[in-house]
């Protein structure tokens, strides 16, 4: 009987968080192009929503009493020479929750807020870095939320030739 009770508790706990998560829609990896030193590339471009990185967050049945937060971070560029991650910028191109307008969109400081990655605050515990918080949802914000990202990169004037790559992480916590 005790074992059965334990199983029920485990199952019920899983259902509590079953619809809490995020997904990323991207046409393969994000390639910013073949750029010359000193050049700036706008992937998607300002106010160009043609090829954004779409982050979809689903908190449909998550507990309603807890705030939730989406963090963004990068582990830094790797390549033939150092390339500061602060040369990569993300920009909120667009955000919506579907057919109906969403109250939380209006609470955002700006629909076109731009913030640089701050490589100095990525380690050792990037999730504690307040300036890496992408968006903080209020308790009761439920539904499927979508964020569209545009990306900007500037190649330093003295950057060595070669291929550079990094991974950008999105973490949703409630």
């Amino acid at each position: 009987m005790k074992k059965l009770l334990l199983i029920l508790i485990v199952v019920s706990s899983s259902f509590l968080y079953g619809e809490f998560g995020l997904s990323i829609t991207q046409m393969g990896d994000l390639t910013l192009g073949n750029l010359a030193p000193g050049e700036t590339e706008y992937a998607g471009g300002d106010y160009d929503y043609s090829q954004p990185t779409i982050i979809t967050i689903d908190v449909e049945t998550a507990p309603v009493n807890d705030d939730w937060t989406l963090y963004v971070q990068s582990d830094g560029f790797s390549g033939p020479a150092a390339l500061g991650i602060d040369n990569l910028e993300w920009e909120i191109a667009y955000a919506h929750t579907g057919i109906n307008s969403s109250p939380w969109v209006q609470t955002m400081p700006s629909a076109y807020q731009r913030t640089k990655f701050d490589a100095t605050n990525l380690h050792p515990n990037p999730l504690n870095s307040s300036n890496q918080v992408y968006y903080r949802g209020n308790a009761g914000d439920r539904g499927q939320f979508q964020f569209n990202f545009n990306w900007h990169i500037t190649i330093p004037d003295n950057q060595r030739a070669g291929s550079y790559s990094t991974r950008v992480w999105f973490t949703l916590i409630q």
Binding site: L35, Y164, R167
Partner: peptide, 9 residues
């Protein structure tokens, strides 16, 4: 979730 970002100089 994560996204791989690449650029060629």
């Amino acid at each position: 979730g994560s996204l791989s970002v690449m650029v060629n100089v």
